[in-house]
Design a protein around this nucleic acid. Structure first.
Length: 884
RNA sequence: GGAGGCAUAGCUCAGCUGGGAGAGCACCUGCCCCACACGCAGGGGGUCACAGGUUCAAGUCCUGUUGUCUCCACCA
C-alpha cells in the first residue's frame, strides 16, 4: 500500500480526497474514545486530560467562531493524546431555548402560516424535537469535517435524560437551600419573544430619542414640578415624584402631592438620594413597575405599584383610556394629549441607551413580573475566591479581572422564561389549597391537602441554567460515575471572551456549589474572528465566511492553520482569502517535501545512521531545538507561536536548506545516500508529529506512507528534547558555509547572473575543512563550476567580485560582468555599513555599566559579535586595497 | 461613569521571562534548477503612536497624552 501511494502521490495536495478517509481511519481505530482509569503499558496509571466542548446550538451551523474554538481545543487534545494522556473531549449540543424556539416559529410562520399558539404547547414542543432530530446532526458532521477528535460515544445534549435530571437536581437543591426563590420583581421583558430575560441577555445600544419635559401640577397650589422622561407612556404607572433630600428648591414640597396629568391620580412628592440634583430639573417621576431604579425607590418608600403594560407591551386596564394601545402608539397619543392639555413644557433630542433582546433585537421593557431567581450573593463569593486562590487561571491573565468584576457586580439571576422549549421548572401548584411543591419527581397529589388538582409551573429555565452544569452533568452527575471520578475536574475550557458572563462564571459557581471543586483549572480565552475589514462576521451583514466552504475548497488543515498561526489568546483576528491561501500553500509545501523524500527512500525503517555528516548534525540540532520550543509553547498555550515556528522550520530550515544540502548525496547512491535518507526521514517524521495537532489530516496521510511505522500518527509519541541530538558545536561551521552560499547568491543576483551560468569560486578560508566536507552541496547551491582554495588572495583583483564573512574571503572571477570602479564603490558601502555596526557594539563594550552589570553571557556574545564584525571589516578592507 | 484591549514594514499581524526588529501578503529583480510556479534565489521598505521615567540596556516594565475598539454600569 505504501509503495502504491508513494508512486501515485499527486503533485498538488488534494485535501478533499484525503480527509474523509483519514477521519474514518481514526474513528475505526477507536482513537477518540477515552477510558476512565486507563493504564499505561507498564501498568502505571494514565493521567486524564479533559475538555468539554462549548456546546453549539443544536440546530445551528458551524461558523468561523466555532471553527476557531474547536480548532484550539483539538490542538490541545491531540497534543496531550500524543503525550500519553488519557484524553477525553466531550462533545455535545445545547438546546438553546430562545434561539431554537424563534427559529422554529419563523419556520412555521413561513411554511405553514402558523404561530406556536395555533399549535399549542405540546404539539409545538413535539415539532421542536422533530426539528432537532432533523438538523441536530448537521453541526456534529461539520465538527467532524474540521477534524475534531471528540469522543462521539459520549455526545450529550442539554435536554437529554441525564442532563435534565442534573438540571432538576440542581434546581431542587438550590431551592431547598433558599438560593432559588420566586418573587414579583422587576425584570427585562421582551414583548416579541414574550418572555423574561436575564440581565446578561439584554444588549444596550445608543439611540437618538427624545426627552419630554412634563409639568405635574402641585395639588392645591399654583406651583408645579417639571419631570423629564424618555418614555412618556410609563407615566400611566407613576406613583410618586422624587426629589433629592438636599435640594433646597423643592424641600418645601416634600410630603405634598402632585396631580398626574391625563390620569388625575395624586402622587406623593418624596425625597430620595437616588435623584441627581444636577440632571434635568432635579425631579424624577417614579414608575416602580417599569423602571429598575424606580422599583427600588418604590420598595424603599412603600409606593403603590401600577403595572400598565401587558406581555405584548400593550397598555392594560390600568391605562384608562389608553388601554389597548401598543407602547409606541400610546406614547404618541399621550404626547399629543399632554400638549393639548398644556402639560408639555418642551421636547429635546436625547441620546440614550436602549436595551435590546439579544436574540430578536427588539426593545425590551422593564416590567414587574412573577419570576424565579437565583440568589447570587452566596454563590458569587466562593466563585470569586476560587479564582483569586489560583485554582482557576485565565489565559490571558487579564480576563481574571473581567470575570471578578462580573461576578461581584452581578445581581440575582432571573432564570424563568415564558417559553415552551426548555427544561420545565419543577414547581407544582395545588389549585385547591395553593400550596407549592418543588420536587425531584413529578407530583400528582398535593402533599398538603391531598388534592389531585395539581399543575406544573408553565415556565422553563434559562438555557444557561443547564449549560452552567455542563462540565459535570456531561460526565454523569448527579450519579457518581467512573467518568466523573476520573475525568473531573476537567482541565482546560476554551471559549471566547464574549461569554465569560453568560457561561464561564456560571459554570464556576455551579461547580463550586455542587461539586465543591473548580470545573477546570484553566480558561483559555480567544477573540472573535472578523472579516478582512475587521468587521464582526454576521448574518445580517452577509460578510460571514462559511468554514465548510473553506474546508471544501482549501482543506481543513489549511483552515486550521489559518485560524491558529500568529493568533494570540484573547485577541481578535481577521480572516482573509490571502491567509487561507498561504496556508493552503504551506500544506502543499509539506506535501511536496514529503513526496520528494518518499520518492527517494529506499530504507524500510526510520532510524538515524551511525555516521552523521555536518549538515545532518545541523538539521538534527535545529530539529531538536524546535521540539523543545514547540513543546514549551504548547504547554503555555502559545499555540500561534508554536504554529509559526513549525511553519518556518519546515519551509525554510528543512526544505530550503536541508533538502537542498542533501540532494547531491541522494543522486550519488551508496551509504552516503542511505544515511541522508535516514536523516531526511527521521526529521520529516518528527516534524509530522509536531505538526499533527495543527494539521491532522495531511500529516496522518503522509505518515501512513512512511516506512516502518505501524501505529497511526494520532497516537504516536510526542517527541521529547534529546540531548544526544544537540550538536551546537557544529552548527556554527555549517552556518559558515551557508553564509558563504548566501553571499555568493547575493553577488550573482545583483549582477543578474542566471543560475545556469556557473562560475569558479575561490576561497581563502579559516574553515577549509567544513567547506571540503560539504563541497558537492556548496557547488550546487552557490552555482560554482569549481572551488579553488587559496593560501593568499589573488595577485590581481580586477575582474573579480568579492565578499567576506568573518572567517572566509570569497573571490569570483567574472571579468565580463565586473566593473572595477563599481565594485570599489559597492565595497565601500559595505564597509561603511559594517563600521556602523561595529560602532554600536563597541560603544556597548566600552560602557562600564554594561560590562559590570549585564549578565556575563550577554557580554560574551557582544564580544563575539565585535570580533566577527572586525574580522569582516578587515577582509573587506583587504579586498578594497587589492582593487585600488 | 467604571474596566480593559489595541497603536510595530503599503496591508494583516507575531514578538513568551527587557539585550538580533520579524512573518505572511503586496512590491521590485532574476529563474519552469530532475519535490513543489500553491514554487526557487535575491532585494527594497519600519524614530516599534507621542511625551516622560526606571535600567548598563526598553517595541518589551512604569506614568501621562492622543487615537481606536471592546466589555460592564446606566441619570429620569
Amino acid at each position: 500500500m505504501s509503495d502504491a501511494i508513494r508512486r501515485e502521490l499527486p503533485k498538488v495536495y488534494e485535501p478533499a480526497a484525503v480527509e474523509k478517509r483519514i477521519y474514518a481511519l481514526w474513528q475505526d481505530g477507536g482513537y477518540f474514545g477515552a477510558r476512565p482509569f486507563a493504564k499505561n503499558e507498564d501498568g502505571s496509571a494514565r493521567k486524564p486530560f479533559t475538555i468539554v466542548i462549548p456546546p453549539p446550538n443544536v440546530t445551528g451551523q458551524l461558523h468561523m467562531g466555532h471553527a476557531l474554538d474547536e480548532t484550539w481545543q483539538d490542538v490541545l487534545i491531540r497534543f496531550k493524546r500524543m503525550q500519553g494522556f488519557e484524553t477525553l473531549w466531550v462533545p455535545g449540543t445545547d438546546h438553546a431555548g430562545i434561539a431554537t424556539q424563534i427559529k422554529l416559529e419563523e419556520h412555521l410562520r413561513k411554511t405553514e402560516g402558523l404561530t406556536r399558539y395555533d399549535l399549542g404547547r405540546e404539539k409545538f414542543v413535539e415539532r421542536v424535537w422533530e426539528w432537532k432530530r432533523e438538523y441536530g446532526s448537521r453541526i456534529v458532521e461539520q465538527l467532524k469535517s474540521l477534524g475534531s477528535s471528540c469522543d462521539w460515544s459520549r455526545e450529550r445534549f442539554t435536554m437529554d435524560e441525564g442532563l435534565s435530571r442534573a438540571v432538576r437536581e440542581v434546581f431542587v437543591r438550590l431551592y431547598e437551600k433558599g438560593l432559588i426563590y420566586k418573587g414579583n420583581r422587576i425584570i427585562n421583558w421582551c414583548p416579541m419573544c414574550r418572555t423574561a430575560l436575564s440581565d446578561a441577555e439584554v444588549e444596550y445600544s445608543e439611540k437618538l430619542g427624545h426627552l419630554w419635559h412634563i409639568r405635574y401640577p402641585v395639588k392645591d397650589s399654583d406651583e408645579y414640578l417639571v419631570v423629564a422622561t424618555t418614555r412618556p407612556e410609563t407615566m400611566l404607572g407613576d406613583t410618586a415624584v422624587a426629589v433629592n433630600p438636599e435640594d433646597k428648591r423643592y424641600s418645601h414640597l416634600i410630603g405634598k402631592t402632585v396631580i398626574l396629568p391625563l390620569v388625575g391620580r395624586e402622587l406623593p412628592i418624596i425625597a430620595d438620594e437616588y435623584v441627581d440634583m444636577e440632571f434635568g430639573t432635579g425631579c424624577v417621576k417614579i414608575t416602580p413597575c417599569h423602571d429598575p431604579n424606580d422599583f427600588e425607590v418604590g420598595k424603599r418608600h412603600g409606593l403603590e405599584e401600577v403595572l400598565v403594560l401587558d406581555e405584548k407591551a400593550v397598555v392594560n386596564e390600568n391605562g384608562g383610556v389608553y388601554q389597548g394601545l401598543e407602547r409606541y402608539e400610546a406614547r404618541k397619543k399621550i404626547v399629543e394629549d399632554l400638549e393639548k392639555g398644556g402639560y408639555l413644557v418642551k421636547v429635546e433630542d436625547h441620546n440614550h441607551n436602549v436595551g435590546e433582546c439579544y436574540r430578536c433585537g427588539n426593545t425590551v421593557e422593564p416590567i414587574t413580573s412573577d419570576q424565579w431567581f437565583v440568589k447570587m450573593k452566596p454563590l458569587a463569593g466562593p466563585a470569586v475566591e476560587i479564582v483569586k486562590s489560583g485554582k482557576i487561571k485565565f489565559v490571558p491573565e487579564r480576563f481574571t479581572k473581567n470575570y471578578i468584576n462580573w461576578m461581584e457586580g452581578t445581581r440575582d439571576w432571573c432564570i424563568s422564561r415564558q417559553l415552551w422549549w426548555g427544561h420545565r421548572i419543577p414547581a407544582f401548584y395545588c389549585d385547591d389549597c395553593g400550596h407549592m411543591h418543588v420536587s425531584r419527581e413529578d407530583i400528582t397529589e398535593c402533599e398538603k391537602c391531598g388534592s389531585v388538582n395539581i399543575r406544573q409551573d408553565e415556565d422553563v429555565l434559562d438555557t444557561w441554567f443547564s449549560s452552567a452544569l455542563w462540565p459535570f452533568s456531561t460526565l454523569g452527575w448527579p450519579d457518581r460515575t467512573d467518568d466523573l471520578d476520573y475525568f473531573f475536574p476537567t482541565d482546560v475550557l476554551v471559549t471566547g471572551y464574549d461569554i465569560i458572563g453568560f457561561w464561564v462564571s456560571r459554570m464556576i459557581f455551579s461547580s463550586v456549589e455542587h461539586m465543591g471543586k473548580e470545573p477546570f483549572h484553566t480558561v483559555l480565552i480567544h477573540g472573535l474572528v472578523r472579516d478582512a475589514q475587521g468587521r464582526k462576521m454576521s448574518k445580517s451583514l452577509g460578510n460571514g465566511i462559511d468554514p465548510m466552504e473553506v474546508i471544501e475548497y482549501y482543506g481543513a488543515d489549511a483552515l486550521r492553520m489559518a485560524l491558529l498561526i500568529g493568533n494570540s489568546p484573547g485577541n481578535d483576528m481577521r480572516f482573509s482569502d490571502e491567509k487561507i491561501e498561504s496556508m493552503r500553500n504551506f500544506a502543499n509545501k509539506l506535501w511536496n517535501a514529503s513526496r520528494y523524500v518518499l520518492m527517494n527512500l529506499s530504507i524500510d525503517e526510520i532510524k538515524l545512521p551511525e555516521t552523521l555528516r555536518p549538515e545532518d548534525k545541523w538539521i538534527l540540532s535545529r530539529y531538536n531545538e524546535l521540539v523543545g520550543e514547540v513543546t514549551s509553547n504548547m504547554e503555555k498555550y502559545e499555540i500561534g507561536l508554536a504554529a509559526q515556528k513549525l511553519y518556518e522550520f519546515l519551509w525554510e530550515t528543512y526544505c530550503d536548506w536541508y533538502i537542498e544540502l542533501t540532494k547531491q548525496r541522494l543522486y550519488s547512491g551508496g551509504d552516503d545516500k542511505r544515511n541522508a535518507e535516514k536523516v531526511l526521514a527521521y526529521v520529516l517524521a518528527g516534524t509530522l508529529k509536531l505538526l499533527h495537532p495543527f494539521m491532522p489530516f495531511i500529516t496522518e496521510e503522509i505518515w501512513q506512507s512512511l516506512p516502518g511505522e505501524k501505529t497511526a500518527l494520532i497516537v504516536a509519541k510526542w517527541p521529547e528534547y534529546d540531548c544526544s541530538l544537540d550538536f551546537a558545536d557544529i552548527e556554527g561551521d555549517v552556518e559558515s558555509v551557508m553564509s558563504a552560499i548566501r553571499l555568493i547568491r547575493n553577488r550573482r543576483a545583483e549582477m543578474n547572473v542566471p543560475p545556469s551560468k556557473k562560475a569558479s569560486v575561490q576561497l581563502l578560508t579559516e574553515k577549509r575543512e567544513i567547506f571540503e566536507s560539504m563541497m558537492d552541496s556548496f557547488c550546487r547551491l552557490a552555482y560554482a563550476s569549481e572551488v579553488v582554495f587559496l593560501d593568499s588572495p589573488p595577485a590581481e583583483l580586477r575582474g573579480y567580485t568579492t565578499a567576506a564573512t568573518d572567517d572566509t574571503r570569497i573571490f569570483i572571477p567574472m571579468s565580463q560582468l565586473v566593473d572595477a570602479q563599481k565594485e570599489i564603490e559597492r565595497l565601500e558601502r559595505e564597509l561603511a555599513r559594517a563600521e556602523k555596526d561595529l560602532q554600536a557594539v563597541s560603544r556597548k563594550l566600552q560602557n562600564e555599566g554594561f560590562l559590570t552589570k549585564a549578565p556575563a553571557e550577554v557580554v560574551a556574545s557582544e564580544r563575539e559579535k565585535e570580533k566577527s564584525i572586525i574580522s569582516v571589516i578587515e577582509k573587506i578592507k583587504e579586498n578594497l586595497e587589492a582593487l585600488r
